[in-house]
Simulated assay, not measured.
Amino acid sequence: MGTKEFQCGGHESALLDCSSASERNTCSPGTAVSLTCSEPDEVRLVGGESRCAGTLEVKHQGEWRPVDGHYSLWTLKAAGVLCRELDCGSAVSVGKREEPSHRFMWGISPACAQSGSALRECAGSGASLYTLNLTCSDSVRLLGGTGLCSGRLEVRSDPSNPSWSSVCEADFDQQDAQVVCRQLGCGAPSVLQGALYGEGEAPMGTKEFQCGGHESALLDCSSASERNTCSPGTAVSLTCKEPDEVRLVGGESRCAGTLELKHQEEWRPVGYYHNTLWTLKTAGVACRDLDCGSAVSVGERKESSKRPGWWISPDCVESGSALRECARAIPSSNFVTLTCSGSSSSQ
């Protein structure tokens, strides 16, 4: 614990460039300095309709470059890390856009980013034709729920103000909930209740929103005067229906066949990959979404050539996430087939 006392002005490039006083021989126990610096990541979305939509770019090694979207490894669940980094709520859609020619980009591993590492620690350089495009929910978010479509509602009423506020139950109705669910890319609201997902730490001062239900975003609605306080237990929690559209095709009933998912406005079969085993537990989520009971059997169907498909991580689904949160686009020639217990009664 013997060290010099440094006397820096704050502008120096290195600590040893600072002047120093006489060496201190001892320090009291528990007074050794610990330090946390903010991560130097700089990230932005460009070319979209707002600062929370567009092509993802990261500044790394002093250079702004787009993020490579070629392998479509970013699921909605993983992209939530990027939206949080941007302070833009939660992920609504993630996809790729083709460029006219190859250009240098940063390749970023979703698994690395989800592990809590800074984006710059996960970035590698390479050339690609495809950029990663992302749309975040911007001014609304749901926290503490079971997925992207449930949780405690928080709103950022002023785009220039980075702080988020909870919403008082008395200031929020079913029409307001319809707008929020739509903005989040979710289905219709199913549960609207105070403190279902906890109180949270955000301040309870927020505007009373007056939506007609048809608006695209909550901040498009008119609003009344701001309420400064709410009673304990009245912070709005909201559950929207999952917008997953799933179907089974080519089987003997609507509850048997090849599994297809409508995601990002496109129907595709779900790929079967031998390194990611589909169990009856995973398949049971799809059967429940189809209102077809439980899973009886799951298998694969092979085709002669590859075509666009959705890859869905079984681990992601079994963690409680919706199918669409765990999907990414990958071509395949092997596809998941499924039989649910409701097959015989769904002819």
Rank of each mutant, 00 (worst) to 15 (best):
E300I: 13
H102R: 09
Q347N: 01
S313M: 10
P269K: 07
V81S: 02
P203Y: 15
V81L: 03
L134W: 07
G144Q: 04
W278M: 14
P232N: 03
C181L: 03
C211F: 15
G284N: 07
L35E: 13
G151Q: 05
E303H: 07
P29Y: 13
V155W: 11
S72I: 14
L259T: 01
D289M: 11
C112F: 01
E245N: 06
C52R: 13
N228I: 14
G48M: 08
F335T: 11
V94Q: 06
T75Q: 10
P331C: 10
G284I: 02
Q7G: 02
N275S: 13
Q7F: 07
E23T: 10
A118S: 12
S222E: 03
Y273L: 14
E49A: 06
G145Y: 03
L56Y: 09
A202T: 13
W64K: 10
L261K: 04
V94T: 05
C340W: 07
D171L: 08
C316V: 11
A170E: 15
S150R: 01
T31C: 01
W164H: 06
E201R: 07
R120T: 09
C255L: 04
L248G: 00
E57Q: 12
R44L: 13
P308S: 13
A177Y: 12
E154Y: 05
L16M: 04
L143R: 06
W106F: 00
W267L: 05
G320D: 11
D41G: 04
V191F: 02
G198V: 14
P29A: 12
E252Q: 08
W310N: 04
A32P: 00
S344L: 13
S237N: 05
A79F: 03
V43F: 05
S72E: 14
P314C: 07
L56F: 09
S101R: 15
G250P: 03
W164L: 02
A113Y: 10
R182P: 02
G30W: 03
G284V: 01
V46R: 09
H102Y: 15
E242N: 05
V246Y: 02
L148Q: 15
